[in-house]
Computed example of a mutant assay.
Amino acid sequence: MRNADERRSESVNGAIIAGVDGSDQGMGAVVWAAREAERRKLPLHLVTAYTVPVFAASSLDAGYATVDDSVIREGAEAVLKQAITKASTYDVDLHARIETGDASGVLLELSAEAAMMVVGSRGKGGFVGRLLGSVSSALPAHAKCPTVVVPLCAASRLPDADVDVPNGHDNDGPDQSPVRPVVTVGVDGSEHARMASLEAAELATRRGLPLEVLCTLPPFTGSLAWVPAPLDREALHEDLLEQLEAGKQWLSSHFPDLEISLKLLDGPPVELLIEESRTVEILVLGTRGRGGFAGMLLGSTSQGVLHHAKGPVMIVPDKEDPRLADRDKFGPMVSDDFGG
């Protein structure tokens, strides 16, 4: 560690931010973020937040008219100190800060300047626990920078994390599945998914790992249920493979040294994504799409994947990128009426 301090006004421009709440999940996020910051040679900011209880602040009892938040703040300081100790073992430019206010609001505001946000999938309620609890997927869906969510079972596999997954956690004990050294990105042909593909390719390049481009063909439902499945699904497979190959050539034009493979699976997207997250280095998704993958990330897929993933999941926000402009030069793209 080069330095660690608390500066509320300190800029987080271009830094990696880890949300801290004192839970095992949060500590796993700190370790994941520290390793990534060291790899990318970026500053690491540890952030914890707390709010003064509303019932105390609004009480008419004179004894509560002035709220003393020193006890709450001391707890936040203890949590932050523990995280600083853990992150200090990595060669990173380390900073720490305590904020007052809603946890998700604090992180969303900081995301406008940060290079990446990293949080645990569940916490103790005061910080990261709020993100996927009462405010659901606010951070992954609305952050201005990529957000990585690290579940407890994935944190337990990280060196130096010192966290354990108790048997029965989420009806699943510690995950002993071997992790393949590969970055996987879920795509559905949307521009949002293409943005996620670019971010995943950059991540894979930095880590010296191959990139796996994954697409699913969900079961027919609703008005499409009457379609002769064997014939139509075979045609859809051929069309999708052609489109995936065109997308692969596009990615290769921007990342010529990156090894890229394609994977097309049949079945429910959420289930397949969760299972895929069990055995890959990291799963990357966009914030929106056509319905098969990222298009549902503000709804049921967000809850399903982010709450039950077995490995780190990166959610990539939509943004302008000049590399998106030449995708159509490499072949067919998924048509507007395709989706789950």
Rank of each mutant, 00 (worst) to 15 (best):
M1K: 14
D5R: 07
E6R: 12
S11I: 05
V12Y: 14
I16Y: 13
G19V: 11
V20S: 14
G26E: 11
A33S: 14
E36F: 01
E38H: 11
V47G: 09
V54P: 05
A57I: 00
T66F: 09
G75R: 13
A76T: 08
E77C: 08
K86G: 05
T89W: 10
Y90C: 02
Y90Q: 04
A96T: 11
A96R: 06
E99H: 09
E99N: 04
S111G: 08
E113Q: 14
S121L: 02
V148T: 15
V148R: 15
A161E: 11
A161M: 07
V163W: 13
G168T: 06
H169I: 09
S197R: 01
A201P: 13
L203S: 01
P218T: 06
P218D: 07
P219R: 01
S223N: 12
L224G: 09
A229C: 03
L236G: 05
L240F: 11
L241E: 12
Q249T: 04
F255K: 00
P256E: 12
I260C: 00
K263I: 00
E275Q: 07
T279F: 02
L283D: 04
L285A: 07
G286E: 01
G286I: 01
G291R: 05
G292R: 08
F293C: 11
M296F: 06
L297A: 01
S302D: 13
V305S: 10
H308Y: 14
A309T: 12
P312K: 10
V313I: 12
P317I: 03
G331N: 13
G331M: 10
S335P: 08
D337Y: 11
F338D: 02
